[in-house]
């Protein structure tokens, strides 16, 4: 495999990183909102959050991508390929992140919230200053795990016309007849990217751990 081919793979890998990074950040943000809505005692908040999670967790990502890309124009939303890809990845991962974070919300010690009540913190303050930070800290390993999963799942977005790492490897393999080398190189690149993500996760865990504070 020539340096030129590898360069093209690296370029595609950067694109994979870009769309995955946006999706991971958007996904965690939406997931945080959905998880806190689900943990809420208000039924108006909890019920839609539950429906959201069951839908986006229950429908395969591939189907979600095709629906967003092909079905939405029927109702007047003709989203371009890149938007469809990021939207599909973000919505899907946010449902999983919401469930991860909900586990964290459930693990916040009751006593802390009672103390907060006694101190007169509003429910909003309690969410931002106590429940969310604790939930995030407790669920960080699961959140990073999901980030890695969605990064790998980004290989599906070629069905809506986005050329990312896997699709580039396939395209190049088809014209150069070097499938083994190209797919191995693509696999190696995914592995390296995920090593970095896992490393960042481990670093964040160390920084946020209780012992050091």
């Amino acid at each position: 495999m020539t340096l030129q081919l590898f360069g093209l793979l690296v370029e595609a890998a950067l694109y994979t990183i870009l769309i995955s990074a946006i999706s991971i950040v958007v996904g965690i943000t939406i997931g945080m909102g959905v998880a806190s809505a689900r943990a809420s005692s208000h039924r108006v908040l909890a019920w839609p959050a539950r429906a959201y999670v069951s839908f986006f967790r229950g429908v395969p990502l591939l189907v979600q991508l095709l629906v967003i890309y092909n079905l939405l124009p029927a109702i007047g939303l003709n989203v371009p390929s890149e938007v469809a890809a990021v939207a599909g990845l973000s919505l899907c991962t946010s449902a999983y992140q919401a469930e991860n974070l909900r586990g964290g919300f459930l693990s916040v010690p009751k006593g802390l919230l009672e103390s907060a009540d006694m101190l007169g913190l509003t429910p909003w303050q309690q969410l931002l200053r106590i429940r969310a930070p604790i939930a995030f800290r407790l669920t960080l390993p699961a959140v990073v795990n999901e980030a890695i999963l969605i990064l790998k799942a980004s290989s599906l977005v070629s069905v809506v016309g986005v050329v990312e790492l896997t699709k580039m490897a396939a395209d190049l393999a088809n014209s150069t007849y070097l499938p083994i080398q190209l797919y191995s190189a693509a696999g190696l690149l995914y592995f390296l990217i995920n090593r970095v993500v896992a490393g960042l996760g481990a670093y964040a865990e160390r920084r946020l751990s209780w012992g050091r504070r």
Partner: peptide, 21 residues
């Protein structure tokens, strides 16, 4: 289902700037 479709539509409408063809 209707609920899911509504959620999808709302979610996209909120999250994205879209071009209406």
């Amino acid at each position: 289902n209707k609920r899911g479709f509504l959620a999808l539509t709302l979610g996209l409408g909120l999250a994205l700037a879209t071009s209406v063809s």
